[in-house]
Amino acid sequence: MCVGLPARVVNVKDGRAVVDASGAQKEISAQLLEDLEPGDYVMIHAGTAIAKIGSDDEEETAGLLDALL
């Protein structure tokens, strides 16, 4: 329902941001997120950054599984 793409913020200006995913760059809307800075990682959906990404998926899932045991 909602394909998301993790991408790195390259620059931010006036509610728009250029993001980079493995070398592919695209300008998207950054209006939903405050205080975005170059270097932040965000989740992109339909041309909009919908969330900041806190950590790497391997790291996070390892932590979640450890908590189960």
């Binding site: 329902m1 809307s29 209006q31 939903l32 959906h45 339909a46 909009t48 919908i50």
Partner: peptide, 15 residues
């Protein structure tokens, strides 16, 4: 079209 995730993008277009 779309669910909660996609709708804000449509609203940004309206804005």
């Amino acid at each position: 079209v779309g669910f909660e995730t996609t709708t804000p993008s449509s609203c940004l277009a309206l804005e």
